[in-house]
Structures are given as structure tokens and as C-alpha cells.
Amino acid sequence: MGTYKLILNGKTLKGETTTEAVDAATAEKVFKQYANDNGVDGEWTYDDATKTFTVTE
């Protein structure tokens, strides 16, 4: 398990959240659902060194 971070750079929603997941693929699924639930759809990037996903609208 590891802690993964999501940085939201949406047009109307900005912020950060974290999740505990077994791997990056699992964290990505959780974060994409979170972003979708909050109406954020954009370009995704992932930094393996910091376990950080970023979505920018």
C-alpha cells in the first residue's frame, strides 16, 4: 500500500486529495472517478517519484 496524491486544476474546482492504494493503476481509477464525480475532465499526468497525479482542464 502507498499514499497517492491528486492535484485538481479544474476550471471551477481546484484542490488536492489523497488515497491509499496498492498501486498507481488502482489509485488512478479512484482519482478518475473522483474527478468525474466533481465534473473535472482534462489532461492527466503522473509523477512516479512523488506518486502524484495531476489533472488540468
Rank of each mutant, 00 (worst) to 15 (best):
M1G: 11
M1C: 08
M1F: 12
M1V: 11
G2A: 15
G2Q: 14
Y4N: 01
Y4Q: 00
Y4F: 08
Y4T: 00
Y4E: 00
K5M: 08
K5V: 10
K5N: 05
L6G: 01
L6Y: 02
L6F: 05
I7L: 09
I7Y: 07
I7K: 06
I7C: 05
L8C: 06
L8R: 02
L8S: 03
N9Y: 15
N9Q: 10
N9W: 12
N9L: 15
N9H: 09
N9S: 08
N9F: 12
G10P: 03
G10Y: 07
G10I: 08
G10L: 15
G10R: 04
G10A: 11
K11A: 11
K11W: 12
T12N: 14
T12C: 13
T12D: 10
T12F: 15
T12P: 04
L13E: 07
L13M: 13
L13F: 15
K14S: 12
K14T: 11
K14Y: 10
K14Q: 12
G15V: 14
G15F: 14
G15Y: 14
G15K: 13
G15Q: 12
E16C: 13
E16K: 07
E16G: 07
E16R: 07
T17F: 15
T17Y: 15
T17K: 11
T18Y: 15
T18H: 09
T18M: 10
T18I: 09
T18A: 08
T18R: 08
T19D: 03
T19K: 04
E20V: 14
E20F: 14
A21M: 03
A21Y: 03
A21V: 04
A21P: 01
A21H: 03
V22M: 13
V22D: 08
V22T: 12
D23F: 03
D23N: 09
D23P: 01
D23G: 04
D23R: 03
D23M: 04
A24Q: 13
A24Y: 12
A24R: 11
A24N: 05
A24I: 08
A24C: 09
A24L: 08
A25S: 07
A25K: 11
A25E: 11
A25C: 09
A25Y: 12
T26E: 14
T26A: 15
T26M: 13
A27G: 02
A27M: 01
A27Q: 00
A27H: 00
A27L: 00
E28P: 00
E28D: 04
E28G: 08
K29Y: 10
K29S: 10
K29F: 10
V30E: 07
V30G: 04
V30S: 06
F31L: 05
F31Y: 02
F31G: 00
F31W: 02
F31R: 00
K32N: 04
K32W: 09
K32I: 07
K32C: 05
K32L: 08
Q33K: 15
Q33H: 06
Q33Y: 05
Q33I: 10
Q33A: 14
Y34A: 03
Y34C: 04
Y34L: 06
Y34P: 00
A35C: 09
A35F: 03
A35H: 01
N36A: 15
N36F: 14
D37S: 11
D37P: 01
N38F: 14
N38K: 14
N38T: 07
N38C: 10
G39R: 07
G39D: 07
G39L: 08
G39A: 06
G39F: 07
V40D: 02
V40M: 08
V40Q: 04
V40E: 03
V40T: 04
D41H: 15
D41A: 13
G42C: 02
G42M: 03
G42N: 02
E43Q: 13
E43W: 13
E43N: 11
E43R: 09
E43H: 12
W44F: 04
W44N: 00
W44T: 01
W44K: 00
T45K: 10
T45R: 08
T45Q: 10
T45P: 00
T45A: 12
Y46N: 01
Y46R: 02
Y46I: 02
Y46T: 01
D47H: 07
D47K: 04
D48T: 12
A49Q: 12
A49Y: 11
T50Q: 06
T50E: 06
K51Q: 10
K51A: 06
K51G: 06
K51P: 00
K51M: 13
K51E: 03
K51I: 02
T52K: 03
T52I: 06
T52M: 04
T52Q: 04
F53H: 02
F53L: 01
T54A: 05
T54M: 10
T54Y: 13
T54Q: 06
T54F: 07
V55M: 05
V55A: 03
V55W: 04
T56P: 01
T56Q: 07
T56C: 06
E57N: 05
E57T: 07
E57C: 05
E57R: 03
E57L: 07
